[in-house]
Design a protein around this nucleic acid. Structure first.
Length: 419
RNA sequence: GUGGGUGUAGCUCAGUUGGCAGAGCACCGGGUUGUGGCCCCGGUUGUCGUGGGUUCAAUUCCCAUCACUCACCCCA
């Protein structure tokens, strides 16, 4: 038999209710804050991701699903959403009407990594971006949204981490200081970090190898090298968060794996997902719009790992299963055809209704109704045909009443609505 | 890409020092010829992950392979 692709997964009924709940919660929250949904394509020209995420990043170097299509063009299944949203913002000149745009999207992303807990090759992200706002209040708003959404979904054991990555004015200074320090402790770094020392020294700060952590105990902090503007913005962000009552931790070791980030950067971390600590991450990317050919406008945004969020959400799918309002149990062909007619009418009018379409004993049908959690069962058989009235049983109280055939669907709907 | 663990019924798992493949749950039927949950009785379901090797005989031993899973790496 043909199985699904490694690292991909089906979301089956029973689990999907939780996904729908999370989606609904996210949408209503974002829309309350003026975010509008945007839908972007699942594939883009490979060039877009190379230029935005960065040629030297792991994502671009070894994780993208990239191939030549039948016309020979190099295309890539999107590994993240920001690049496409920025592309759309520029291409459709959304900034012309108003540079300030709040956009969100929910959809699948693709990265060909080795699957493990909380990590799939097709995974879903909830993404939100704010364009055209330079103020750190925009970053504070994003973090507030994350914290609020997580609280609504009863996610326990999460913590917001914030940091500033500086800007083109001050980051080179810090980078030089860090590199000098790394050279001095060179011997005690792990192989990966020795390699990263030249190309991407900031990543060394994020290394989890104990020897590296020890060697970096006295590493310079980016926060000591921020220029005046970066310092001011970072202070303002913290003041805003404190004012909102959002708990957070300043983590000078927090870095991003994508090259386009500047200044404010943040992550929501959890201890509940094994090695995968990040449930959401984001930050400011003030230079990206311009780099991709648009105007020089600032932007900030985040992505939530939907699959990870679903795993740690305190609201389970259990209470979310739909239960029928009514189950129709019919005995014999004549009763069944009557019941079928009622079932179709009631379903059309919005009553959750199910019935057995085959020939089954009443006992068996009652069992099915019970298993489905039906609130009521409407029985019709020989006796009822003679009486011209069906029997409506309340499954909880076991109370049964006769309902005349005449206008039955309407009568039933009225009875159920009255509850 | 590297390393560890695991693959037996729809699900959770036992098992065979190599000899006809098991339990619980689920499902179906009956006990009640027309009334669910509890109880009792009965029944259905398997290429024992796949391919090869050793053997009279392999689900069991050996080799390979695939899948799942956890971790490294990286990230959401």
């Amino acid at each position: 038999m043909i199985q699904l692709i490694r690292g991909f997964k089906d979301i089956l009924p029973g689990e999907i209710e939780l996904w729908q709940r999370i989606e609904a919660e996210a949408k209503s929250l974002f829309e309350a804050f003026g975010f509008r949904e945007i839908r972007i394509p699942i594939m883009e020209k490979t060039e877009l991701f190379k230029r935005s995420i960065g040629e030297e990043t792991d994502i671009v170097e070894k994780e993208m699903y990239t191939f030549a299509d039948r016309g020979g063009e190099m295309v890539t299944l999107r590994p993240e959403a920001t690049a496409s949203i920025v592309r759309a913002y520029i291409q459709h000149k959304l900034y012309a009407a108003d540079p300030v745009q709040r956009l969100y999207m929910i959809g699948p992303m693709f990265r060909r990594e080795r699957p493990q807990k909380g990590r799939y090759r097709q995974f879903t992200q909830i993404d939100a971006e704010i364009f055209g706002v330079a103020s750190p209040l925009a970053d504070a708003q994003l973090i507030f949204l994350l914290v609020t959404l997580f609280a609504r979904l009863k996610v326990a054991d999460v913590e917001a981490h914030v940091n500033s990555l500086g800007c083109p004015a001050c980051r080179p200074d810090f980078r030089a200081a860090l590199q000098a320090m790394l050279t001095s402790v060179g011997g005690s770094l792990c192989a990966d970090c020795s390699r990263r020392r030249e190309r991407n020294p900031l990543r060394v700060l994020d290394c989890k190898v104990p020897s590296c952590r020890a060697a970096l105990a006295g590493a310079p902090s980016i926060l000591d090298h921020l220029c005046r503007e970066c310092r001011r913005d970072f202070d303002e962000l913290q003041a805003a968060l404190s004012g909102l009552g959002v708990g957070y931790r300043v983590n000078p070791r927090l870095v991003r794996g994508l090259d386009y980030y500047t200044r404010a950067t943040f992550e929501i971390q959890t201890g509940a997902l094994g090695a995968q600590s990040a449930v959401a991450g984001g930050g400011r990317y003030d230079k990206l719009v311009k780099e991709l050919g648009g105007p020089d406008l600032p932007a900030t945004g985040f992505a939530i790992g939907f699959d990870r969020l679903a795993e740690i959400a305190g609201v389970g799918a259990a209470g979310l299963q739909p239960r029928p309002d009514l189950f129709l149990a019919a005995l014999g062909p004549e009763s069944r055809s009557l019941a079928f007619d009622w079932a179709c009418r009631l379903g059309r009018d919005g009553v959750r209704v199910e019935m057995e379409l085959g020939e089954k004993s009443l006992k068996s049908q009652m069992k099915t109704a019970d298993r489905l959690g039906a609130a009521h069962v409407l029985m019709v058989g020989e006796t009822e045909l003679n009486d011209r009235a069906a029997l409506l049983r309340n499954m909880q109280t076991k109370e049964q009443i006769r309902v005349p055939f005449e206008g039955l669907a309407e009568r039933i709907k009225t009875l159920l609505d009255a509850r």
